[in-house]
């Protein structure tokens, strides 16, 4: 970690527009949970909370979007406008820059997503038991956010169109292709996150059944973080400024 870099990144990421956008997005699952609690839903709370609220809204939509927004901006926005030079022309090993940026992007993502997970989860499940559902998804979201942020950060060093590439990955690959071809699920951070959540929540397969086993998910998550992190550092060590256009 490098504190000045981390501080700067935090101020960079939490500008007004981004914060408002993320706050609105994070509010969606909370509102839904409130509607579930005080409305007339027929589904079983644990069923609904894990399959709908957590899996569909938080893990499949909120988590990747938040990670995409923060992960690609943490270093990518500076590479885009040329200010990255002010960080890179300093006697700091580049891996420290990557790690500092990554940790901040990750923590900011987690702050929004975890808040939504815990508040919405407690709202939906309070008094129903199944506290492990909230714990499971909370832990899974923290781990998933790290994997997503690492991948998107590395992507933002590799290409200036990282945001679009990330959108395609999340919505075409994870949203469409993995639904059509089961084998591709081992290459989906969403599935790792769900696998880890199901493992910790230890629900009966009838209630919630992720595609991947917990241990497998954890190993794959770790591999993704390490590989993407290593790629990101390598790319930044060989960072070249474009022609000054």
């Amino acid at each position: 970690m490098n504190w000045p870099v981390a501080q700067l990144t935090l101020r960079l990421l939490l500008n007004q527009k981004r914060t408002v956008l993320l706050a609105v997005l994070a509010l969606v699952p909370v509102l839904l949970a409130a509607v579930f609690r005080w409305g007339s839903f027929e589904e079983h709370p644990a069923d609904w909370a894990s399959n709908r609220l957590m899996a569909q809204i938080i893990v499949a939509a909120l988590l990747p979007l938040a990670a995409l927004i923060f992960g690609t901006a943490a270093l990518g926005s500076e590479i885009d406008d040329g200010t990255a030079v002010y960080l890179l022309a300093k006697p700091i090993p580049r891996w420290r820059v990557v790690v500092s940026k990554l940790v901040v992007a990750w923590l900011v993502t987690v702050a929004f997503v975890l808040m939504a997970t815990v508040v919405a989860g407690v709202l939906a499940l309070a008094g129903e038991g199944h506290a492990l559902v909230v714990v499971g998804f909370a832990v899974a979201v923290i781990a998933g956010a790290l994997a997503y942020c690492t991948v998107f950060l590395a992507l933002s060093v590799a290409t200036s169109r990282a945001f679009l590439a990330g959108l395609v990955y999340v919505f075409i690959w994870e949203g469409l292709v993995t639904g059509l071809f089961e084998g591709t699920r081992v290459l989906s951070i969403r599935e790792y996150t769900l696998g880890l959540a199901g493992w910790i929540a230890s629900l009966s397969p009838k209630t919630f059944e992720p595609e991947l086993a917990g241990g497998q998910s954890l190993v794959l998550l770790a591999i993704v973080c390490l590989v993407a992190g290593w790629v990101g550092v390598r790319l930044l060590q060989r960072f070249e400024t474009g022609e000054s256009s």
Binding site: L21, L32, W48, R52, Q56, F163, L167
Partner: peptide, 22 residues
């Protein structure tokens, strides 16, 4: 781009969750 995608995908998921539940 993020706002547009979020609008379509998020609204779709939320609408789906509401109608599936009761």
């Amino acid at each position: 781009a993020g706002g547009i995608i979020a609008l379509f995908v998020f609204s779709g998921t939320v609408g789906g969750v509401l109608v599936e539940a009761g």
